[in-house]
Simulated assay, not measured.
Amino acid sequence: MPKVIYTGNTNTTGGRDGASRSSDGRLDVKLSPPGSSGLGTNPEQLFAAGWSACFLGAIGRAAAERQLRVPADAAINAEIDLVLNDDGYVLQARLNAKLPGIEANLARSLVERAHQLCPYSKATRGNIAVELNVV
């Protein structure tokens, strides 16, 4: 039987022109549509932040499988596009991994393994276009 490790709980009002607050109060953000002059962030930025954090952790797990350490200055730049196509709105993503000091082929291998391990990658697999890059 699966074991729930953690449940994130937020309450959002007003949609893209509203606010979102976590049940523990640690997250409390105003929301505004992408590209607007509103004061808040948008769901695409929040998704990019969550996925990039998770993905960097997954790179750490992939590196540990090979008895390697991820450099302290490693980073993931996640780009989440909101796209309007014939079927309506969809998302697409680019995950750009910066792994200083790690040889390019090894870095690519770690990124590909992380994409298999990361829960966000698992959740989106087959649902949105995802491009993996080592920069």
Rank of each mutant, 00 (worst) to 15 (best):
R125I: 07
S121G: 13
L99E: 03
D28L: 04
A62P: 00
N133A: 14
N127I: 05
L31Q: 00
F47C: 04
N133L: 14
V4I: 14
L132F: 10
Q92C: 03
P71K: 11
A58P: 03
N105G: 14
S22H: 06
T41I: 01
K3S: 11
T13K: 15
Y120I: 12
E131W: 10
R94S: 05
A64C: 03
F47A: 02
L56E: 02
R94K: 08
T124D: 07
S23C: 08
S32A: 12
V70K: 00
C54H: 04
L110S: 11
P33I: 03
D81V: 06
I5Q: 13
G57E: 04
T10E: 06
Y120D: 04
D81N: 10
K3V: 13
R21P: 08
A78L: 14
Q67C: 08
V29T: 05
G50C: 06
R26M: 13
A19F: 13
I59T: 07
A53P: 05
A19W: 14
L31W: 01
F55D: 00
E112H: 14
A97K: 04
T10C: 13
L84P: 00
W51S: 00
P34T: 01
P34A: 03
P2I: 05
V4Q: 07
S32T: 01
A49W: 12
